[in-house]
Structures are given as structure tokens and as C-alpha cells.
Computed example of a mutant assay.
Amino acid sequence: MKIKATLERIPGGMMVVPLLLAATINTVAPDLLRIGGFTQALFVDSANALIALFLLCTGAQINVKTFGVSLAKGATLLTTKWIVGAIFGLLAFMFAGDNGLWMGLAPIAVIAAMTNSNGGLFVALVGQYGNKDDRAAYSLLALNDGPFLTMVALSIFGMMGFVNGMFSMVSFIAVLLPIIIGMILGNLDEEMRSFLDKGSYMLIPFFAFSLGMGINFSAIITGGIGGVVLGFMTVFITGTAGYFVFKSLKWNPIVGAAEGSTAGNAVATPAAIATASASFSSVVDIATVQVAASTVTTSILLPLYIAFLVKRLERKGTTFNHGEPARRAG
């Protein structure tokens, strides 16, 4: 039975299939794998640990002489995602009706969902379609976790003042440290670099499954059509913007598109914003469910969109071999 070959024939299959399988299990029988012990530790609670190990393995492949390229890619991703999300958030505020909503969407939900990205999803997609510099770009993307960049956008728009405590340097360093440790190990010992390289690809289906165990399809129903629309906007607008920005810079455009998602931590952003400014309290409930729906929608839709983009590039002659895109000869 050729399981690996079958998964590899499906665009993004090493990530998409485990994630959707786990999401289905979590929706239909959420307690099936939550039985404690090694089973729950591996299949339910392992995402953060496995992603951290993936980042360490990735860091080991980085040559200190080229680390600047990874930082440039990370900064470009972060800036593109924030600018696009902030622009649509501003439009939502400008054209919101008397009920404080724009086409049924809460403006703070638009900013929270579109400026934030799912780091685990990005790591999984780039692990399959990006090179070592692309994977290390994640080192900067932790900055869009939580309400910090939403707060920055709202402050620029004059909607509220900046509030201390919305960004944690310790949390940022905690994300960066595995990459740095891996980079030190890889640059000190070539054999260690080769040893850790094996983990970069192998870990993807395992942490993808664990990520899927955090997805419940019922969130799409709860968030209503507005949350689904917000998810589509996040994937097709921010993802496409990242695609073309990276393409214009002669970088792998799939990596740019891989930022088109909303992370689960963004669900708490509307409440955090409302706590800092009571003027948002009237829309905090609807904003929360819309962001939650966007999180689930993008988790399902983005891998499919990436698969479409990969197929499109392959038809034009680009091949993807374990994360290294190249033009076909002839």
C-alpha cells in the first residue's frame, strides 16, 4: 500500500490530508483521541512541540552568511499582510453602517483576521514548497500573533490610543530561539546539519494532524456567512497579494501566498481590543465568532488554494522537489 506516494500525488497532500482528517475527527468525535497518555500527546497536543522541532531543524540548514535573506522575506511577508489587512479594515470603518458593520462584517474582525496568520499552517506549507531561507522567514512572523498589529492599525486610524502590554518581547524571543539554536548547531557542525535536515520534511504530517485536532467545522456555522466571507477575503486577498509581491521580487511566490490565513489566537483579539477601548464593546461578540469562522475557513481553503497555485506553476514548467522550486529543463 503506497501511502506516501499517494499523499505526494495530492498537491500539499502531506499537510492537507492529515489536517482535514484530524479536523473531521475533532468535529465528529472530539474525544476519540483525547484519552491521555502518548496517544493524546502525539495526535492532539503535539503541534507546538513539533513545530518548534521543525524550526530547529530548519534553522540548522541556514548559513549565517545568508540569514539576511530570510529576514528580508519575513519582513516582506509581515509588511504585505499588515498593509493589505489594514487597508480593508480602514475601508470597513469608513463604510460601516449605523450598526457598526460593513457588509455584515465587524471592522475589528476584518483587521484581526486579515493581519494575523496561522504560523503552523505557514510552516507546513512552506516546509513542503519552500526552501530553507523561506522556512526561516517565520522568525519574524510571530510579530503578527495576537492583538498587537491590530492595535497599531487602529491607532494609526485614530480609533484608539496605543496600549502597553499588547506585545511581548519574551514571546517573540520564544519563537525565535529554536531557529537560532538550530542555526548555531548547523553552522558549527556540517554533520549535525545533515542529520537535522531529515526532520524538516518528516515532521510535516504529524504537526499538521495535531493542528487539525484544533479545528471544528461547527465554527463555520456559528460564525455565519460573514465569517466565511472573511476567511475567503483573507485567503484570496492577502494570500494573492503575498504571491505577487514575492513573484515581483523573484522569490518563490508560493511562500508569499502561504501567509493567507487567520490563526486561532486571533479569536481573542476583539475581546482584547474591547478591553482596551470600550467603544468596540458593541461588536465584540459578532467580531469574535467571525474571526473564529475565518480561522477554520482559511485552515481548509488556504491549502487548497496553494495546491491550485502549485499546479498552475507546474503547468508553466516549475517543479517542486521537497521544497526546492526549479524550472524544468527544456
Rank of each mutant, 00 (worst) to 15 (best):
G12N: 08
S277A: 13
L78M: 05
V267A: 03
G146M: 15
K2V: 07
L19N: 02
L249K: 05
I215P: 00
F38M: 14
A293F: 05
V126F: 00
M202F: 11
V284I: 14
P303H: 04
A274E: 12
K247A: 14
S117Y: 01
V69G: 05
K2G: 15
F148C: 09
K311N: 12
S294G: 12
S139M: 15
V64H: 15
I3D: 12
I51K: 01
I62G: 06
L78H: 01
V291G: 06
G130H: 00
I306S: 03
V16Y: 02
N265R: 02
Y138M: 09
F217N: 02
G68N: 10
Y129F: 07
W251P: 09
G227K: 02
G100F: 03
F244R: 09
Y305F: 15
F88E: 03
F320E: 00
S294D: 11
F148A: 07
A86P: 02
V170C: 08
L185A: 13
S168R: 08
M202A: 14
G227H: 02
L125C: 09
V110Q: 03
T115V: 12
A174E: 13
L185Q: 08
A23E: 06
A137G: 08
R9E: 11
F38Q: 13
W82K: 00
L20N: 03
